[in-house]
């Protein structure tokens, strides 16, 4: 037994050190935003914002939030989330740190929760939120809910965030497939949202990831995802300017039904020249 524990202890040590990480400095971020009320809703409960630095084109913060709740509570919630997160990161000194985003999200959660408690008719109000911060060649994201962050790199599209929905959990346990999840009647049920609970768990990238020239980042609310498939999204994003891509995405979502609010932010990392 003694030998075994000794063996177990020694096995954990001195694994190979990580490969060196290349952080590029020579890039610019070009961005476009688009939001649409959709064909059926009375108001737009999505909120989105992009903050750019006037001195440094390599820094940016993109936030998308999808609110829910009756009596315009959804609008209030999402706007509040976006402004709190933006303000928290603006005041901060440290960029591209997952912790900054975590504290920002928690602050937003507190504020919305307090508001809901004070205003009885807004009980149950909440919002999803996904934020992407890019600075100094590093990026990191914070995420709660079912808004999504995708990245296209080297012709591959990858969903960086994991949905906090019931169907996503079912998929993880292998109960249903991805196609079944798309058309599942309960796909709108969230397991995590800002404002509904005093405590939340915020998803972040484990560590800031280095960005590359040619990366395309897409933040979108579920209004887009429900209506447009991944392949169609990739086609519209590659080789298009962010503005064109945004227009194409929103129009495609509206053409395919568009019953929910649709919001997208497209960021493209380009060479400085």
């Amino acid at each position: 037994m003694h030998l075994f524990t000794l063996l177990a202890k020694t096995l954990k040590r001195f694994k190979t050190t990580d490969q060196p990480m290349t952080i590029i400095q020579d890039y610019v971020i070009s961005v476009a935003l688009a939001s649409d009320i959709g064909c059926q809703r009375q108001n737009n409960e999505d909120a989105l914002q992009y903050l750019a630095s006037s001195t440094d084109p390599r820094t940016g913060l993109a936030i998308v939030a999808d609110g829910m709740g009756g009596h315009k509570a959804g609008e209030v919630a999402s706007q509040e989330a976006v402004s709190v997160i933006a303000r928290h990161c603006q005041d901060g000194y440290f960029l591209t740190l997952p912790q900054t985003l975590v504290t920002a999200f928690q602050e937003a959660n507190q504020k919305i929760n307090n508001y809901a408690n004070e205003h009885f008719e807004c009980r149950g109000m909440g919002t999803t939120a996904t934020a992407l911060m890019i600075s100094n060649g590093l990026g990191c994201y914070g995420h709660v809910g079912d808004t999504r962050l995708y990245r296209i790199r080297d012709g591959q599209m990858e969903q960086l965030t994991q949905d906090h929905t019931l169907v996503a959990q079912m998929q993880e346990y292998g109960m249903i497939t991805k196609e079944q999840a798309r058309i599942h009647p309960k796909k709108n049920i969230l397991t995590n949202a800002l404002g509904t609970n005093p405590d939340i768990l915020v998803d972040t990238s484990d560590a800031p990831f280095p960005i590359r020239i040619g990366d395309i980042y897409l933040l979108c609310s579920d209004g887009l995802v429900d209506k447009v498939t991944d392949e169609e999204m990739m086609l519209m994003l590659t080789d298009n300017s962010p503005e064109q891509a945004c227009k194409l995405l929103v129009d495609a979502a509206l053409d395919n039904g568009g019953n929910d609010n649709i919001s997208v932010i497209v960021l493209v990392i380009q060479n400085k020249h």
Partner: peptide, 12 residues
């Protein structure tokens, strides 16, 4: 940072 919000959202 001196971030400021961008104001050119495309409205569908």
């Amino acid at each position: 940072l001196d971030l400021a919000p961008l104001d050119n959202t495309y409205q569908g």
